[in-house]
């Protein structure tokens, strides 16, 4: 809950066309007893469609908090945030759920698949929550699994799959709703380096197909896959520059 603010709020200015993610002086403040902790301190970034961005920073830098804000899992204490021309910083719980479902595909470090559900059902899940009819749902989930090369494993449960396969199921789930942003949080953190390379190759492929990708990581090797790296230190943007691959 934001604290009462007596200053007159300027009407947030919507971002220019072609910009998918736009934050304007974003703050996130936690109350720890009597002290306030500013995890994110006035971050203003813009990410255009079909960009491939890595957000880097050491642990405690506030990059996870920033990721939660970008992923609409959390609301900022101050500032404005647009995704796909929607001002989400003013939204309530259920509206945020709708945005997460429609605009964002998550890929987590720990995969976060439902253990008791098959790969197909896991991929189907986002479609269940937006009311897609069952036949269409299954068709699209299968299509999505084909895209990550796991069509023949759709009846397997997560514990019957390898780590790399699990992450590919998670990527299929992220893709199934055709979101405007794929947001990956340390996607190779739980994988061996060979599998990690395979997964990053998959992200490359998705980027080539026109997806916008944001990868949060602390590993330079992984950040090198992106075309732009935003470095976060102490809750602020420390550096924002293109990588070698941008050329």
């Amino acid at each position: 809950m934001a604290t009462a603010n007596l200053e007159i709020k300027p009407t947030p200015v919507p971002p220019p066309a072609g910009v998918l993610i736009h934050t304007d002086d974003l703050w996130k403040t936690y109350q720890m007893g009597s002290t306030e902790i500013h995890a994110v301190q006035g971050v203003s970034i813009s990410i255009r469609r079909n960009e491939y961005v890595a957000i880097m920073g050491p642990s405690g830098s506030g990059k996870s908090t920033l990721m939660n804000l970008i992923g609409c899992l959390d609301t900022p204490s101050k500032g404005a945030y647009w995704i796909n021309n929607r001002l989400v910083s003013e939204m309530n719980d259920d509206e945020l759920a709708y945005i997460r479902n429609k605009e964002i595909g998550f890929v987590f470090q720990t995969f976060n698949l439902l253990a008791r559900a098959t790969a197909l059902h896991n991929v189907e899940l986002p479609l269940i929550y937006n009311g897609t009819p069952a036949d269409k749902r299954i068709e699209r989930a299968k299509e999505s699994l084909r895209l990550v090369d796991l069509a023949e494993r759709m009846d397997h449960r997560p514990n019957e799959l390898s780590g790399g396969q699990r992450q590919r199921v998670a990527i299929a789930r992220a893709l199934v709703n055709s979101p405007s942003l794929i947001l990956a949080d340390e996607p190779t953190g739980n994988l061996d380096s060979k599998t990690g390379v395979e997964i990053m190759a998959l992200f490359d492929e998705l980027h080539r197909q026109g997806n916008t990708i944001v990868v949060v990581t602390h590993e330079h090797d992984i950040a090198e896959y992106a075309h732009r790296v935003i470095q976060i230190r102490d809750g602020k943007v420390f550096k924002d520059e293109p990588t070698a691959r941008a050329k």
Binding site: G71, R100, F106, L125
Partner: peptide
């Protein structure tokens, strides 16, 4: 709790 977190992350609303 974690399952609920996953469901909410991928778009489950409160009433779901």
């Amino acid at each position: 709790t974690r399952e609920i977190g996953i469901r909410k992350a991928i778009g489950a609303k409160r009433h779901d």
